[in-house]
């Protein structure tokens, strides 16, 4: 694994000057992942419609120093299947050197991955496509104005799950996509966080190294949609992990490993209180919801620990 110094010396494949918001978690996730592609490897990227796509490609600029293709919202994985097949054909014909290593990276937000892109993702995983899928999960459709997605946390107020007299924000729990992806029995699936560069980098290196599909689900703070302070983004991401809302773990060749176990699991309020989208949960009448939130996290964390080190 590369040291921080070695990483810093590598060529930047994702440039500055993009239009993602101040405090957005996406750019550093992408930078780190692109730096984790092995030496002498080339990488091709495709991005579903979303913040990352819009923020990095508005004419006449591009942040991408790799071949990069914008797919439609629902099919980054399918697009990548075509790209990979075409590159393989070029290799067979000898137009690209046979020993040249090319990595395929599909990217999408939670809307483009958990929701509309899920069918294409599942299809590519089932086919055993040799690619890495990165989901930057900021927990809502931020690009179109903060509408709820199936990744949106319980209780979160969004523009289509507004907190009010009828509902206290989103009433459903988020979809556990990492486990669903792992259920396709792919070589590698992992959950990571934008704040923990070392863990994320190791996972990205592993994802690029395995043969077959690899999936990275990375929590990405969004000051706009979380109503959080941009300067506290990394701290907010860290608290998602410290409270075990977003456990960081991996499933490598079927074996689950919890990569970080907080010495002292922080109460969920610590994470929630930094974000305006949960403000209403702190009202007297919503105390029960806070407890429900905590209970569910405790349960899921306990289940995860039960599986730690086991073949699942």
């Amino acid at each position: 694994m590369a040291t921080l110094k070695q990483l810093a010396e590598k060529e930047e494949l994702f440039t500055g000057g993009h239009r993602l918001c101040a405090g957005c978690g996406i750019p550093q996730i992408i930078r780190l992942i692109l730096r984790s592609v092995g030496e002498n490897c080339s990488v091709v990227g495709t991005t579903a419609t979303g913040c990352l796509e819009v923020g990095t490609s508005i004419y006449p600029y591009s942040s991408w120093r790799i071949p990069w293709i914008h797919s439609a919202f629902e099919n980054a994985s399918a697009t990548m299947t075509g790209i990979e097949a075409a590159y393989n054909a070029l290799k067979r014909k000898g137009k690209i050197a046979k020993d040249k290593e090319i990595k395929f990276l599909a990217m999408g937000g939670d809307g483009g991955t958990y929701d509309i892109g899920f069918q294409a993702l599942s299809g590519a995983l089932e086919r055993g496509q040799d690619f890495v899928y990165l989901c930057y999960d900021n927990g809502a459709y931020m690009n179109t104005g903060i509408q709820r997605s199936s990744a949106t946390p319980f209780g979160s107020a969004t523009t289509t799950s507004p907190a009010g007299s009828a509902i206290p924000g989103k009433t459903q729990w988020r979809k556990d996509l990492t486990r669903i992806v792992a259920a396709h029995n792919i070589p590698y699936a992992a959950q990571a966080s934008a704040h923990n560069w070392k863990d994320l980098q190791r996972k990205a290196e592993r994802a690029f190294a395995v043969k077959g599909p690899a999936f990275l689900n990375v929590v990405s703070p969004c000051p706009l949609g979380w109503y959080s302070k941009p300067e506290l983004s990394m701290e907010t991401a860290k608290l998602a992990v410290e409270t075990c809302y977003w456990p960081i773990y991996e499933i490598d060749e079927g074996v689950l490993k919890v990569n970080y176990k907080p010495k002292e699991k922080k109460p969920i309020e610590e994470w929630l209180k930094l974000q305006g989208r949960f403000k209403h949960l702190f009202k007297e009448e919503n105390k029960g919801l806070l407890k429900e939130f905590q209970d569910r996290i405790d349960l899921e964390w306990a289940r995860l620990l039960d599986l730690d080190g086991k073949h699942i």
């Binding site: 459709y141 179109t144 104005g145 289509t160 507004p162």
Partner: peptide, 15 residues
Amino acid sequence: YPITPSSEVAEHMSI
């Protein structure tokens, strides 16, 4: 499903 420039219709109906 959210899509610009129609999302406000959904948002209003969700309220």
